[in-house]
């Protein structure tokens, strides 16, 4: 069973692109997180869970702040594994990927990390500070867990080929030069990046970094195979207003449909 691949297939058959909401583990509190993720799972085709880290260099202010609060709440990788273990008791259908900085994996031990990940049914990992040149650090141990590589608007065609070649579920396309956080426009370079990948591979492409509105998502339908929305969801989660979150997720989800 490959839940991530199935998610893309299913979205396609529904005439949609994949919607991948992000939330930070342990934010705004450990209890609230468990509630929020259950809401998010109703709308997401795949969910991305950020594991808090003391030095999130790829993240902008919103996720930095959430990560910081989550750490103060006592969130850590071990508790995230525990959460997923319990979550899988009642939800075995949605693919879950963890976004975490490499040191958190290294600290546990790469082999041990992937062993636990596989045991508790984690579908994939996104490691924002691990470029393809360092893939040997994780590849021998991943054992069925997908490692999702990032491609950026600065990535050359030559390196893009290597990234595509190593990718086994989807390529995470970083749409901007910069850190995570909502932006008004989708850059032309971001769209070009997707087209550059499409020219060399059938691997699904997912655009992330900077997305925040239904209009942006609508403009990507027919171009990308999926979208990740992170900071804007984290910002809304902060308000602790479930109905506001539901309205936002509904709005984004509806924008993923082909006309």
């Amino acid at each position: 069973m490959n839940r991530i691949a199935d998610a893309f297939t299913k979205a396609k058959s529904d005439n949609r692109i994949c919607f991948i909401p992000f939330c930070e583990f342990g934010y705004p509190s450990l209890e609230e997180f468990s509630k929020i993720i259950d809401i998010i799972c109703k709308y997401g085709d795949i969910v991305e869970v950020g594991i808090p880290f003391s030095d999130p260099i790829a993240d902008g202010p919103i996720i930095q702040k959430a990560s910081n609060i989550a750490l103060k709440n006592g969130a850590n990788l071990s508790k995230a594994f525990e959460w997923l273990y319990n979550f899988r008791k009642y939800n075995t259908s949605i693919p879950v990927v963890f976004m975490l900085y490499y040191n958190l994996i290294h600290y546990v031990g790469v082999r041990e990390f992937f062993k636990i990940a596989k045991d508790i049914d984690l579908d994939g990992v996104i490691i924002p500070d691990l470029p393809i040149e360092e893939s040997d650090n994780v590849y021998p141990y991943k054992d069925g867990v997908s490692v999702i590589w990032l491609a950026s608007v600065t990535t050359s065609d030559k390196r893009l080929e290597k990234i595509v070649e190593k990718s086994d579920s989807f390529v995470y396309c970083v749409s901007v030069k910069g850190v995570t956080g909502p932006r008004e426009e989708i850059s032309k370079d971001g769209l070009d990046l997707i087209r550059r990948i499409k020219r060399i591979s059938n691997i699904p492409t997912v655009l992330g970094f900077g997305l925040k509105s239904k209009d942006q998502i609508r403009s990507l339908v027919g171009i990308a195979d999926g979208v990740i929305v992170g900071s804007e969801i984290v910002r809304i989660v902060e308000d602790l207003d479930d109905s506001k979150l539901v309205r936002f997720l509904e709005e984004l989800k509806s924008a993923t449909s082909m006309l």
Partner: peptide, 18 residues
Amino acid sequence: RGYFGEYGGRFVPETLME
């Protein structure tokens, strides 16, 4: 690859690789 034995390397966001 930028290693001194097992130390060093390039653990950075993709955007910084080029």
